[in-house]
């Protein structure tokens, strides 16, 4: 273990330079963020991830944000275990009818001010699953959405761009 730790100390970090923020995302956000809430949060946001029906592809890439290459926490963004500790809900999937109430309750449990980021093409409008008897549709059909990050699934870089835009406008 000492060898591994020592090597990690001597090696250059794997963490890569942040991507430029997503300007389109910034424009989408500008309308939803108020100056007062920006002051209160500073540059640090706590994120609660909610899978509302995804195929788990988006979860894999959200997980990757925590690895050494993307290192999400350097931006003051971190995942938390409870919606009561969260500023941001990161919601994936077409919202299934069986998850609708759970998503509503998670949203209600998140204190204000809060933002909802819908991740993935399914979260936009139900994607490939739209129209099924088991699916409500996109996330915005259930809770208000501040930012969409597209992709199937969005790459960690695309996720970072979107989240950085969120931090940027929450400053």
């Amino acid at each position: 273990m000492r060898k591994l730790l020592l090597e990690s100390l001597l090696q250059a970090p794997l963490t890569e330079a942040p991507p430029s923020r997503d300007d389109a995302a910034l424009a989408e956000l500008a309308a939803s963020l108020e100056r007062a809430s920006r002051r209160r949060l500073g540059r640090s946001l706590s994120i609660r991830e909610v899978d509302a029906g995804s195929c788990n592809g988006c979860e894999l890439e959200i997980h990757a944000l925590n690895n050494a290459f993307y290192d999400l926490e350097r931006f003051g963004l971190k995942f938390v275990a409870s919606p009561r500790h969260a500023d941001v809900l990161l919601v994936t999937g077409p919202v299934t009818k069986n998850m609708r109430e759970a998503l509503e309750r998670t949203w209600a449990a998140t204190p204000d001010p809060k933002w909802v980021v819908a991740v993935g093409d399914c979260a936009l409008d139900g994607g490939l699953f739209a129209g099924s008897y088991g699916v409500v549709g996109g996330v915005s059909a259930v809770v208000p959405v501040d930012l969409h990050i597209r992709g199937c699934p969005p790459s960690p870089t695309a996720l970072l761009k979107g989240l950085l835009a969120l931090v940027e406008s929450a400053r």
């Binding site: 995804s54 299934t96 069986n98 699953f129 088991g134 699916v135």
Partner: peptide, 11 residues
């Protein structure tokens, strides 16, 4: 289980 049932057989 069943929370993420999307109705794949039907689709």
């Amino acid at each position: 289980l069943g929370y993420v049932h999307k109705g794949v057989d039907g689709l």
